[in-house]
Each structure stands twice: as structure tokens, then as C-alpha cells.
């Protein structure tokens, strides 16, 4: 029992407990406005985790997460506009996730079964995001309607019904709790996966695709399924965002939106979901504070962080800090000479 506990105590686990403790008590200590604001951050964190799944865990660098985020948001919005009333909104959420999953599956089927990998996946997914953004921006005319839903060009779709479960409308604190519960489930799923058969399969594929196939893994199928699940996750984040703001616009699908999760994941530590959440929270809070003096500053900082990370901390800032603290503080305190290894 003591040994198990000793093994469990790592910087990452301590930070994770503190982080989720902070997030779950956040609404009690902050105003409704700030809580609502944080719900939007949680959507961005889920989006970042969807990228961590494909890139950090599986080694597929994707620029299309923003596209799936937008696909989720637009699907939810279109369904809401076509079917009045909030009763069906939970079904629309699932439908949006299913569409995100299918879109990712179709794209990844052609990529991975076509033998495309590495930088070419990055290029193709970047093109998908660009094409989708460009397409959505030119849908201002009345001919661009799906049923009763006008796509609205640059203005996007507005006044979208909020997600509602029974009589509980997902706004303010409710939306925050809903997003936080989803984030917690996803996070725990990631942490469980890291030690599971699937986790080791993903490491194998991430580190050496050819060798993995020579161990009998159907690499293309696994890549496709992971990419599809990440597509559904990004779509879920898109629905949370859409219900948060009541609108969805093409910029939500754009290149900036596509780049932010890349930096959050790279800077936090792409193989470490706790690090991704912590860094995302830090960056999103900071960028919002900076927004008062112009959003360009936050993007400049984002670019600078990316450069610094690529050059000096390729494992990610937070992940590297976890490693240093484990080595210098936690392990000596616990009299532990732990071997590194495992998923990270």
C-alpha cells in the first residue's frame, strides 16, 4: 500500500490534484462572468488535448483540429436552426461529435491508408483548415443555406440555442461544470490510457511506425481511429464554444485558431496531458489579460514561446519542469531512484 502510494507521488500527479481542485472550486471563488469566461478556456483546453492525443501520444502532427472544432460548432448551429427548441440539443451535441468523427475518419482514411505521414499530414491538414475557413467566409449569400440555417459568411451563425439537458440550460456556472466534467473524463481517460495496452501501442507507433507494423500492429487503422476520436473531441470543444457564445464564425476554424493548440501542446509538453492543461490555462489567462492592450501582443508572445520551446525545451516547458522537480525534489524526498520510461 505504502509502496503504491510512494510510486503514485510524482510532481505531475501532485500538480494534477491541485489543478483539478482549483478548477472544481473556481466557481465558488470567482464571479459568474469569470466562471463563464473560464468555460470558454475549458473548450480550448479540450481542443488542445485533442491535438495532444494525435500529436503527442500518436506522433501525427495535425493542423486540422480547428477544422473539426468548426465542423462541430457549425453542425450544432445548423441543427439548432433547423429544429426549434432546446429539447433536442443533447442529440445535436452527439450528432456534431459524430460528424467531427466521420470527417476526421474520411480524411485520415485517405492519408494513412495512402501511406501519407509526417510533414505531409501537416501540410494536408493545414490545407483542409485553410480551405474550410475560406469556404465558410464566402457563404454570405442567400444561396448558402442548409435547411433554415444560413451560413452567414464572415458573420457566421448567430443566436444559437444553448445546450440544454432537461430544464437545465448550459450557461454560466452550468456550462462551466459541464465542460469541466467532460475535461475531467477526458483527462482521466488519457491518464488511464497511458498505462494501458492502447497507450503502449500508441508509443510504439509514435516512435517507430515500421517497427510497430513488424510487431503485428495495424498501424494505418490505429492512426485512423485515433485521428477520428480526436476529431470528435475537437468537435465537442466546438459545441461548447458555440453554446458558450451563442455563435460560430469562420475565424473559429481559421489558421490562428489552428495554431494556438499547436503552441499550447508543444509548449506545455505534447506527451503530457497535465502539462498541456496547465500551460493552456496559463496562456489563455495571460492572453486575455493582454487582450485589453491588443490581441496582437498575445500572438507575438505565442510565437516567441513556440520559438523558445523548439530551440531550448523540445519536451515542453511544463513537462521539463515536472521532470526536474521529480529528479531534484520528489525522488530524493521519497528516497526513490526511479527509472524513467513509460509513455512519456
Amino acid at each position: 500500500m505504502m509502496n503504491k502510494l510512494k510510486k503514485w507521488i510524482t510532481t505531475e500527479n501532485i500538480v494534477a490534484v491541485a489543478l483539478f481542485g482549483y478548477l472544481f472550486t473556481y466557481p465558488m471563488m470567482n464571479s459568474a462572468y469569470r466562471t463563464m469566461n473560464m468555460a470558454n478556456f475549458l473548450a480550448s483546453i479540450i481542443l488542445a488535448l485533442s491535438l495532444a492525443l494525435v500529436w503527442g501520444y500518436t506522433g501525427i502532427f495535425s493542423y486540422a483540429q480547428a477544422a473539426f472544432y468548426g465542423i462541430g460548432g457549425y453542425t450544432y448551429a445548423i441543427l439548432c436552426k433547423n429544429f426549434a427548441g432546446p429539447t433536442l440539443t443533447p442529440a445535436f451535441l452527439l450528432a456534431a461529435m459524430a460528424v467531427g468523427f466521420l470527417a476526421a475518419m474520411i480524411l485520415s482514411f485517405f492519408m494513412f491508408y495512402g501511406g501519407i505521414n509526417d510533414v505531409f499530414v501537416a501540410l494536408i491538414t493545414m490545407c483542409v483548415t485553410l480551405v474550410l475557413e475560406t469556404f465558410l467566409q464566402q457563404t454570405a449569400g442567400p444561396q448558402w443555406k442548409i435547411g433554415k440555417a444560413a451560413l452567414g459568411g464572415f458573420n457566421g451563425i448567430n443566436s444559437i440555442t444553448k445546450l440544454t439537458f432537461g430544464s437545465t440550460v448550459m450557461r454560466d456556472k452550468n456550462l462551466y461544470i459541464f465542460a469541466l466534467v467532460l475535461l475531467t473524463i477526458i483527462y482521466l481517460g488519457f491518464r488511464y490510457m497511458e498505462r494501458s495496452k492502447l497507450g503502449y501501442t500508441l508509443i510504439s507507433i509514435r516512435e517507430n511506425r515500421e517497427r510497430s507494423e513488424l510487431f503485428g500492429y495495424n498501424v494505418a487503422f490505429i492512426q485512423m481511429m485515433i485521428f477520428s476520436v480526436a476529431g470528435a473531441m475537437a468537435a465537442l470543444a466546438g459545441v461548447i464554444y458555440t453554446t458558450w457564445g451563442g455563435y460560430i464564425v469562420p475565424t473559429a476554424v481559421g489558421m490562428t485558431q489552428a495554431t494556438i493548440p499547436v503552441v499550447l501542446v508543444a509548449a506545455g509538453g505534447k506527451k503530457n496531458s497535465t502539462a498541456v492543461i496547465l500551460f493552456s490555462l496559463f496562456y489563455l489567462t495571460l492572453s486575455q489579460r493582454l487582450a485589453a492592450s491588443g490581441t496582437q501582443y498575445s500572438l507575438i508572445i505565442l510565437g516567441a514561446i513556440l520559438l523558445l520551446v523548439v530551440l531550448f525545451v523540445p519536451k515542453g516547458i511544463i513537462h521539463s519542469l515536472f521532470e526536474i522537480l521529480d529528479e531534484k525534489v520528489v525522488n530524493p524526498l521519497l528516497n526513490r531512484s526511479e527509472k524513467k520510461g513509460g509513455c512519456k
Binding site: E207, G341, G342
Partner: peptide, 8 residues
Amino acid sequence: PGVYHDLT
């Protein structure tokens, strides 16, 4: 050798 260097 197609082994995973960062693992045990």
C-alpha cells in the same frame, strides 16, 4: 535494432 530507446 528496432528497439525503443527511451523505454525500459
